[in-house]
């Protein structure tokens, strides 16, 4: 009997393996076609010099494109901007999102759903549409922002909100925060709602209320959710493209260039497809590292 059972078990186990393999095949095929092959193609292409209009004329350059990247002033500007966006997004989106979530969770008694919906709404609008709306707001001639700033007696930037290389990246950040903070708020709110009320009751007995309770109870309890939120924001910040492309196309004077727009510029405008591939590989390595971090922390969470 035992022998038969073992046979049945091993048979069903091998059946399960077959079923699992069959179920995985479609996903593997799609991943291979749309992710693995293009990724390998990009890595291979990064060792060549070619353009979209000279696809039959690939010239081997070895690591030349990577060396070029290290010497390219605008690559470093783009990378620096990506890190600025990461930092600003964490502060604005996760930071403000956490505060809003805390207010909605414990700070107000009525209208939570309404406020939550209002704050979340920008998230469901396409980034391109959001950018176009904010382009009008930032316009130096007819934009409402200029009118507001002037009405309170302040001066507006003479080169425009998006025309001044020193502030344009920050204006784009504000728009990105306006759109994405709601999502972070909902994510963190879900984490907050998982914190037991009894913990707060116990803390209250020990004298921890309000900001103290938020600092010593809430934040440690939602630590893992915050880590996930930070990683999602970081990866989003490295993938950013639409906002920059619609607002400034990387200008003025490459001041708002990020890796995504710089890769596009090199590939499609300047026709350096091999170099664009090398930049994409660098971005891929950064994204893989961040993805690995996210996976690791999600499992912990």
């Amino acid at each position: 009997m035992n022998k038969n059972n073992t046979q049945i078990n091993s048979f069903s186990l091998s059946n399960d393996k077959v079923s699992a393999t069959i179920l995985l095949v479609p996903a593997l095929i799609f991943c291979t076609i749309f992710i693995f092959i293009p990724a390998i193609g990009t890595i291979v292409g990064s060792f060549y010099s070619y353009s979209l209009t000279s696809m039959n004329n690939w010239k081997w350059v070895g690591f030349g494109n990577y060396v070029k990247a290290t010497q390219d002033e605008y690559f470093w500007v783009a990378l620096k901007n990506n890190f600025i966006i990461v930092f600003a997004s964490i502060v604005l989106q996760v930071g403000v999102g956490t505060i809003l979530a805390a207010i909605l969770d414990r700070g107000i008694k009525y209208g939570r759903v309404i406020f939550r919906t209002i704050i979340f709404t920008p998230m469901v609008i396409s980034s391109v549409a959001v950018s176009l709306i904010w382009l009008i707001i930032y316009d130096p001639n007819v934009g409402i922002l200029n009118a507001i700033v002037k009405s309170i007696g302040l001066s507006t930037p003479s080169k425009g909100w998006l025309g001044d290389p020193n502030i344009s990246i920050w204006m784009i950040m504000i728009t990105a925060a306006w759109q994405n903070t709601g999502f972070m708020m909902v994510l963190i709110l879900a984490g907050l709602q998982g914190v037991s009320k009894e913990v707060y009751d116990a803390a209250e007995i020990d004298g921890a209320t309000g900001v103290k309770a938020f600092w010593y109870i809430t934040l440690p309890m939602i630590r893992n959710v915050l880590i996930v939120a930070i990683l999602i924001t970081t990866i989003g910040a490295f993938k950013v493209f639409e906002f920059i492309f619609v607002f400034t196309q990387g200008g003025p004077s490459n001041a708002t260039q990020v890796l995504g727009t710089y890769i596009y510029l090199q590939a499609f405008n300047l026709l350096h497809m091999g170099y664009a591939n090398a930049l994409s590989v660098i971005l891929l390595i950064i994204a893989l590292f961040l993805g690995w971090l996210q996976l690791k922390s999600s499992r912990k969470a």
Partner: peptide
């Protein structure tokens, strides 16, 4: 020119 030509869209100047 107006202030901030680099931040002004061509369509707007046509409308002006």
């Amino acid at each position: 020119f107006q202030d901030a030509p680099n931040a002004t869209h061509p369509d707007l100047t046509r409308s002006m």
